[in-house]
């Protein structure tokens, strides 16, 4: 398994020229970090600090997380009022029912309503509900988003194509300590008869971070 991991990273190294050119990056620089990641893993395994299996488990868990899990949570909340209530009351326990761990943090689910639009940011680093949504997108980790989401949230929302009316409260959540946040969007009109699976299909990652709204028109 260790060899597979190494093979994976090394194979990537050979592809590198194609991938990096459009980003206008120094090829050698990124190659530098590929070497670093491999070197660290090899050293820590040789020293017995971590085992290849422990690294593999982490990689597998990472690959098993993604916005589909969050969409399932949202769709269940839309179709199961008792679950929705539990989710808003104690997010950690409610997603635990679905077998989703919070890994030492607590989940707070914030609900969009006709009066309030919620939006999540972490200005200090990039805290994100990774066990639900997977790794955060680049924009969530960017200086632009981290700096501006708190001071001009409506302008940032516009950049995502989301306009919030002036009589609706924009509530920004700076995820700066031990809580992680998930936005429960409003279920779009006209989807009342949809089943949970179909509903999950319109819940995107960006909806659950609060920069977009579910679109049922497609």
């Amino acid at each position: 398994m260790a060899e597979e991991e190494r093979g994976h990273v090394e194979a990537h190294h050979h592809d590198h020229h194609h991938e990096v050119a459009p980003e206008n990056r120094d090829v050698e620089e990124t190659g530098h970090y590929e070497l670093m990641a491999t070197a660290i893993r090899e050293l820590l395994v040789e020293k017995g600090v971590v085992t290849p299996e422990q690294i593999r488990e982490q990689l597998e868990f990472m690959d098993s997380r993604g916005p589909a899990l969050g969409a399932e949570i949202v769709a269940k909340a839309w179709t199961d009022p008792a679950f929705r209530e539990r989710l808003l009351d104690d997010g950690t326990a409610a997603v635990g029912e679905l077998g989703i761990p919070m890994a030492g943090t607590e989940l707070v689910v914030v609900e969009n309503t006709p009066d309030t639009h919620n939006m999540i940011v972490c200005t200090l680093c990039s805290c994100y509900p990774r066990t639900i949504l997977g790794l955060p997108p680049d924009w969530y980790k960017s200086k632009s988003y981290r700096s501006r989401a708190v001071i001009e949230p409506r302008a940032v929302l516009e950049e995502f194509g989301t306009t919030v009316a002036d009589d609706v409260t924009v509530r920004v959540h700076d995820s700066n300590a031990d809580m992680r946040y998930l936005v429960l969007p409003m279920q779009p009109e006209g989807t009342e008869s949809w089943d949970a699976e179909r509903l999950a299909g319109i819940v995107t990652r960006d909806c659950m971070v609060g920069v977009a709204l579910p679109d049922a028109s497609g």
Binding site: V150, E152, P153, R154, A155, D166, D167, T169, V170, R171, V172, H173, D174, S175, N176, A177, D178, M179
Partner: peptide, 11 residues
Amino acid sequence: DGPEQDTLDLE
């Protein structure tokens, strides 16, 4: 640059 009622929550 936004309406009076906008808020920000943090821990």
